[in-house]
């Protein structure tokens, strides 16, 4: 073996070793949480409210709260994000306004989640007087989710062949008719994938909901969108740091359920992507 080849073997070994340093802790961590948590996850844990200062009972209100927040986030962010992306891809000319939107998307994607929390608190909770509520939390999470949805939708729209637009316009369709009939139907898979992905992130977020919606201990379901709600992520934070003497199996089980929820959503988006890719017609 030449010296150069020896160096190559050594270098590749180091790269492989670094990669193992990255992935092995991931596997171990996941295994750790699953192993410690799965034992305490049963039907009553999933369907009962917490009891006795959260030391007993289940996490049902937190699961429901998180799901409501996901839905609320989607209601606000999906239409807005898709329309904004349509603007950028189909309508925007290369001018100052367009560059400003693009810069804003870049900026929004980099704003720390706690700053979204501050913003939501200042604007929705206090200024708009929505109070600490599902509405305020959903709006905050929705703005946070916008950049991912916009970016994914943009990519999906751009991947639709230009000829589709040309055909439609050449037959006398208006711009919007063209977008609705010849562009959007073929970009839905990409849009859905991006949306589910961004929602799975929103589901795991804690900082933006700290002051906008999260209830520390609310062992019932919310009554309206102006009600507070528990959420899985915040619940895990609360029992891990704020309440002494929580039985470890309860916190592990909560972590497990949160991870499982996020994974299921991710898996959903991966399956969606794969299915539509197979069906791709052009």
């Amino acid at each position: 073996m030449s010296a150069a080849q020896k160096r190559q073997t050594a270098a590749f070994f180091i790269l492989g070793f670094a990669t193992m340093l990255v992935v092995i802790p991931i596997i171990l961590t996941m295994a750790y949480v699953v192993f410690k948590g799965i034992g305490a996850v049963n039907w009553s844990f999933l369907t009962e409210a917490p009891r006795n200062g959260m030391k007993e009972g289940g996490i049902f209100p937190a699961i429901v709260g998180t799901i409501i927040l996901i839905i609320g986030t989607m209601i606000f962010s999906l239409p807005l994000g898709v329309l904004a992306a349509i603007y950028l891809v189909e309508y925007a000319k290369d001018n100052f306004f367009t560059r400003l939107i693009k810069l804003s998307v870049v900026n929004l994607s980099g704003v720390p989640s706690i700053v979204y929390g501050l913003f939501g608190f200042g604007l929705f909770v206090l200024f708009l007087r929505l109070g600490t509520s599902i509405l305020a939390g959903s709006l905050t999470l929705a703005i946070m989710s916008l950049p991912v949805i916009i970016t994914a939708t943009k990519e999906a729209l751009e991947s639709v062949p230009a000829s589709f637009r040309e055909i439609s316009l050449s037959l006398g369709a208006t711009k919007w008719q063209t977008i609705r009939n010849c562009v959007l139907p073929y970009s839905i898979p990409g849009i859905l994938t991006g949306t589910v992905l961004s929602l799975s992130r929103a589901a795991g977020e804690t900082a933006p909901i700290l002051f906008t919606v999260a209830a520390f201990y609310l062992p019932r379901l919310p009554h309206s969108v102006f009600d507070q709600a528990m959420a899985l992520s915040y619940h895990l934070y609360a029992i891990a740091t704020q309440v002494p003497n929580i039985p470890p199996k309860i916190s592990f089980a909560t972590a497990f359920v949160l991870i499982a929820l996020v994974f299921l959503m991710n898996l959903g988006s991966i399956i969606l992507r794969a299915r539509f890719r197979k069906k791709k017609l052009w």
Partner: peptide, 29 residues
């Protein structure tokens, strides 16, 4: 544009059909 292009139609170089049924291709306009 929409009226003009309706009166002056075009057939493109490579056959460019929409990925829908035969019927819907013709019925699109």
């Amino acid at each position: 544009d929409s009226i003009l292009r309706r009166k002056i139609g075009i057939v493109f170089a490579m056959p460019q059909v929409l990925p829908v049924s035969i019927f819907n291709n013709v019925a699109y306009g």
